[in-house]
Nucleic acid binder design. Structure first.
Lengths: 180, 180, 180, 180
DNA sequence: TATGAATGAGTCTTCATTCAT
DNA sequence: GATGAATGAAGACTCATTCAT
C-alpha cells in the first residue's frame, strides 16, 4: 500500500496534499514544490503525474468537490428523516459555518472559477447539489433560494468572527422555504 | 493635474491601475511590473510608493471597498425613496449581478481575506454597509438576512450563466425582510 | 512484420522517426519522448535500443547518410548515360535544391559534425560520394570542385527563396568541370 | 568602463560571451547560465537584457554577422588592389578555411536559419556581401558563383582535415570568374 | 525482454526588492 | 525625490537516464 511504485496511490497522495494546502495558502499559493513536500514525494513526481500546475490544481479542486458530494449525501440523509426541514438545514449549516477550512476551500473554488471558466461546472457542484437535495422537500425555487442563502452565510462567516447563529439561520431558511 | 511631479496623483493612478487589474488577473496575479505598465509609470514608482507588494494589494482592495461605498450610497438613496423596499433591492441586486468585474473583485476580496486576516475588516465593508442601509427600513435581523442573501446570489451568479432573475430575487428578499 | 515483438523492426522504426524529425526540430531538438511518440513506441523502447540519446542521434544521422547513398546511386545512373555531364548534374542539383527537408537534414549533419568530431566521417559521405561519382567522368580535381560547388549551392538555397536556377548551375558546373 | 552600472557595456559583454560560445557549444547549446558564467555577470542579467533566450541568440548571431561585415571590408580592400582577383580571393579563402571557429559559427548560423525563418536575412549577409564585393570585379553571375563556391569550400573544410588548398581554390575560382 | 515509473539535474523565465545615481 | 539597473530566489516545466517489475 506504500506510495512507491503504486501510481494510483501516489497520485492520490499528491492530490490530497494539494487539497490540504488550499485552505492554508490558497489556490494561487500552490506550487509544485509545496505540494511535493507536503505529499512527501520528489518534486519530479508532481510534474510526472500532472502535466501542468493547472492540471494539478484542477485535480485538487475536483477532489474537494468529491468530498463535498459525500457531505451532501450526509445532508440528504439527515433531511430525509427530519421533522422540520428548515430547522434541520439550519443546524447542518451552523455546523458547516464552523468548518473554516472547508469554507475557505469553497471560496477558493469560486474565486478560481471566476478566472478560469473551465472550472465553473465544478464550482457549481455544491450549490446545485444542495438545491437538488432541498428540492426533494420544497419546490425548486424555494430550494434554490435556500441554497443561495446558505452560500451567503458561508461568505459572511468567512470574514466575521461571529457567523449567523442557528436561530438566525433557521428563521431565514424557514422564511425562504415556506413562502411559495 | 498630470501624474508627473504630482505624488498624490501618481499614487492614485497606481492604485487605480491595480484595482482595474484585479478582475483581469486576480489578486494573486498582481505584480509590480504589471501595475506599473497599466498605470504607465516607471517600475520604480510602484515600489517607491508602496513598500511591498502586499501594501499595494491592500491599497487596491481599499480602493475597491471605497468604490463600493459610493455604490452603497446610491443604493441607500434609491431605497430611501422606494415604495416597495424588497422589490427595489431586488432590482438593484439584479443590476449588480450583471456587473461581472465588480463581482469578481469582491470575490477576490473575500478569498484574500480568507488567507490574510488583516483584510477581513475591509472585506466586511460591503455586507455590513448593506446591512446598515437596509436596517433603516427593516429590523437589523431582517437586514442582515437580506444582505447575506444578496451575497449568496452574487456567488451564484459568478459561476452560473443564468443568475437569479429579478422576480426570484424579489420573492426571496420579500420573504426574508417581511418575516419578523 | 509488426513492430511488436520484432526487435529489428522496432529499432528501424525508432531510427526512421528520429530521421523524420530532424528537419522539423533539428538534431538539438530530438528527445527520447519526441522520437518515441513519433515512432509510436513506448518511451522505454528508445532507451532500450539506444544506450544514450547521442547514440540515437548518431543512428539517425547514419540513416540519413544511407538514404543519401541511394540518392547517389541514382545520380550515378543518370550521369552514366548522360550526353552532357555538367548539364545533367545541374538538372539533378536543381531538383535537390527544391527538397528543403533533405537540405536541412544535411545542414544539421554538418553542424553536428562541427561539434562532434566522431560524426565527421559520416558528414563526409555525401560530398565524398558525389566526388567519386563525378570522378568517373572528369578528373578528381574537377570532380571535387564541382561537388564543393553543389554544397555551396545547397547552403545558398537554404537561406534564399530563389535558389540558383538550372542555367546558372549549368554554367558554373561546366566551367568547373571543363577547365583542366 | 566597468560593466557594473553601465548598461551598454554590460549588454555588449553578454553578447560577446554568447558569440564566443557558439563555436564551442553550438547555438542549440547556449543557455542563460552558460552565457552568464562566461560573461561573468549574474544569471539574472542575461534575462534582464534579453527577454528570452531566443532574443539573446539572435543578438549573438547579429554580432557574428557584424564581425563578418568587418571581415568583408578587409576582403574588399585586398581585392581592390589585387592584380589577379581570383588568385587573391583564393588566398583570402584559404586563410578563412583555417579559422575553424569562424566557420563553425557560420555553419551554426545557416543551421539556425534553417529552423527559424526570421534569421534567414541575417544568414544571407555573408554570401550576399561577398557577392557584392566580387561584383565590383566581375559580372554579378560570376560573383554569385564564386561566393557560392567559397561557401561550399567552407562546408568541405568543416568536415575534412585537409581543406582545399590555395591552388585548388584558385583554379576553381578562376574558372568560375573568367567564364562569361 | 521490455516498459512504465520515477527522479534529480537543469532549463527558461518571472519577480520582489534593493540600491546607485 | 525618483527611477532604471541589478540580482538572487523561486517557479513551472522538461528530460535523460535509471530501474523495478
Amino acid at each position: 500500500m506504500s506510495a512507491a511504485r503504486n501510481p494510483a496511490e501516489r497520485r492520490r497522495r499528491i492530490v490530497e496534499a494539494a487539497c490540504d494546502l488550499i485552505p492554508e495558502v490558497g489556490v494561487g499559493g500552490l506550487t509544485h514544490r509545496l505540494v511535493a513536500a507536503r505529499a512527501d514525494v520528489p518534486l519530479g513526481a508532481t510534474t510526472y503525474y500532472f502535466k501542468t500546475l493547472g492540471d494539478l490544481v484542477a485535480a485538487a479542486l475536483e477532489a474537494a468537490a468529491e468530498l463535498t458530494a459525500e457531505w451532501l449525501r450526509r445532508w440528504a440523509g439527515e433531511l430525509a428523516s427530519a421533522a422540520d426541514v428548515p430547522a434541520t438545514l439550519a443546524a447542518l449549516t451552523a455546523a458547516y459555518l464552523r468548518e473554516r477550512d472547508r469554507m475557505v476551500t469553497w471560496n477558493e473554488m469560486y474565486a478560481a472559477a471566476g478566472h478560469r471558466p473551465e472550472l465553473r461546472p465544478l464550482a457549481r457542484a455544491w450549490n446545485d447539489g444542495l438545491t437538488e437535495v432541498l428540492a426533494a422537500h420544497v419546490g425548486p425555487e424555494a430550494a434554490r433560494r435556500a441554497a443561495v442563502f446558505v452560500d451567503g452565510a458561508v461568505l459572511h462567516a468567512l470574514v466575521n468572527d461571529d457567523p449567523l447563529d442557528q436561530d438566525a439561520l433557521a428563521g431565514a431558511l424557514a422564511a425562504l422555504m415556506t413562502q411559495p
